[in-house]
Design a protein around this nucleic acid. Structure first.
Lengths: 337, 337
DNA sequence: CTGTTAGCGCATTCAA
DNA sequence: TTGAATGCGCTAACAG
């Protein structure tokens, strides 16, 4: 019925071990033998049994994507990238959704890792910045690739220069003539919150514009928090003429507030976001934002992880490119200055 | 180091097999013994090794979610529900993304199923309607739960009465005074396309309104196709005063077209969608639509699947409730009649 | 109701 | 460069 490694060995006239060596690309097999085995593998349509492999080898050929469900779209993109890399390398992916900050979640993760003999994991923000988790993983020798972590030294994974991106984005607003520019921050424990805010500040400074604390409000990276923050900003005695929201969902919230108040975007208010998620193109007016290659980030992070799994010295922290997406939501202010 | 079933057995003073029985909820264990074992499992923090279980038991305790990536949000909700059910029952979920219609995709799936010894699968539209796939799965004895399939007899899974829902939704438009109501269909191979269109037709008929073919155009369930279809409808000599888009993404596309043309929604044009995905609340005006309990559908479908895995006779086709979500995008037509 | 034995399919010793 | 024996942790079939 099922083709086993034993069958391949018999047909190829070698031992099981030799077939195993060929399959796992171990050295020490004569070229001719290797070819013979490979052709038999092909011919019989042999596929190793993952459970047996995992049980005997103490590893699962599985990578875990651990997440806390920040932005669903973002996550989906990452997931797609991770899955892509996994398929390319005959790994599989398991999802570990967790509640960040929930009591005992670190040991929960570690325990799952052991249960499934997971070979490595990809951590998305805000987990990528969790010191406790990381030191646990390190202690247990479990490789992890980080996506957009705050600390990058000696880590593997991917990141984008979000600070510069934010600076450029706000620079566009300034270029258009805006001076009172609001900003909606993300939750504090996100590196993104920090970098985007810093970039905002950098841009103002470069243009010689004062940083006005009342123009900077807190958000949660959710649509609803964007609505609240937008109301707060537009309720100011001197409201901003432009708002840089920390991500697209919050920017969409701002646009909704504007709509409810009869303000035209971008004529009465310019709005921009960050991430270039699906929604940025699906709302009207389409949102100016910064594109991160999210899917590719998931993929590359996974590739680095797989390298490290093979060789504990390998793998690095990649910087990925970003791109401003200038769309309809920006215009000069009504009364420049 | 690792806690094994043997350790639990020793501590509980029973044999391995008894522990195994308890873990797998097999009958034939005295209540007291069961409790004792369970408490030891708890105490030692024992977790079965999936690979060993899978290897010995010829099954993986894994369920596959097979999909073709229709709407990302929809899928994510389904996935979350499936994952939820899996966790509750100590199953894990693997993702099998495929290209529907690609040459040999059926055997690709079957082969993966065998390789991983997958215990069952959840099929989302349009795969839930794939005859070839289903007969293959049936032939191989692989249980599958279907989400919103066209054919429901003798199948397990979940569905919603989309036709009635669509009728009620269009009924709302008619109630408001609309007579020229446009409809954007989905791709033909989706059951949803059919049901929603039929519901539209039913509503018109009930109200004694003629079905006008030029008011019904094709779409692809994507935002962009919604834009195109919206343009087509609004370019008519006598454009509709309301549009029922086959799903939310397309409805968002229509709203964008309206925005670009300076038409006010809902004052100049009423729009409604279907599915109640995230975008329906995030655009302005917020979209009137039909909510399907997508996440719960994923969960329930999986529960049915797990039942059938245990017992080839068990499991059924559940009908899940829907709910109209009346939001901002509807108003009476400017010139009733 | 419970325990014993064998073996799932592979990787990993070690020896040849 | 290759092969034979051992066991990964669990479940299944049978025995008690």
């Amino acid at each position: 019925m099922r083709v086993r490694i034993e069958d391949v060995a018999a047909v190829a006239g070698v031992s099981m071990k030799t077939v195993s060596r060929v399959l796992n690309r171990e050295p020490g097999v004569r070229e001719e033998t290797r070819r013979r085995v490979e052709s038999m593998v092909e011919k019989l349509g042999y596929r190793p049994n993952p459970s047996a492999r995992s049980l005997a080898g103490q590893r699962s050929y599985m990578v875990a994507l651990v997440f806390d469900n920040p932005s669903r779209n973002y996550l989906l993109e990452i997931q797609t990238g991770v899955l892509e890399a996994c398929r390319e390398h005959h790994y599989s992916m398991v999802l570990i959704p967790i509640s960040f900050g929930q009591r005992g979640y670190v040991s929960e993760i570690v325990s799952m890792v052991h249960q499934y003999a997971i070979d490595g994991m990809v951590l998305v923000p805000p987990l990528a910045d969790d010191r406790k988790l990381q030191s646990q993983l390190q202690a247990q020798g479990i490789p992890a690739a980080l996506i957009s972590p705050r600390v990058r030294r000696d880590r593997i994974g991917v990141a984008v220069d979000e600070r510069t991106a934010a600076r450029e984005l706000v620079g566009e607003l300034i270029q258009l003539g805006h001076r009172r520019i609001g900003h909606i921050k993300g939750p504090r424990h996100h590196g993104a919150c920090l970098w985007r805010h810093d970039g905002y500040r950098d841009a103002l400074q470069l243009a010689g514009i004062d940083y006005v604390p009342e123009l900077v409000v807190d958000g949660e990276f959710t649509f609803d928090s964007g609505v609240l923050a937008g109301q707060q900003l537009l309720d100011l005695a001197a409201p901003p003429t432009a708002i840089f929201a920390g991500n697209d969902d919050m920017a969409a919230g701002v646009i909704r507030v504007a709509g409810m108040r009869g303000l035209s975007v971008p004529d009465d208010l310019s709005v921009c976001g960050f991430d270039d998620t699906e929604i940025s193109r699906h709302i009207f007016p389409a949102l100016t934002t910064v594109r991160q290659p999210t899917r590719d980030m998931g993929r590359q992070a996974t590739l680095e992880l797989l390298e490290r799994i093979r060789d504990p010295q390998a793998g690095s922290m990649l910087t990925m490119p970003y791109a401003l997406q200038l769309r309809e939501s920006l215009a000069p202010p009504r009364a420049p200055g």
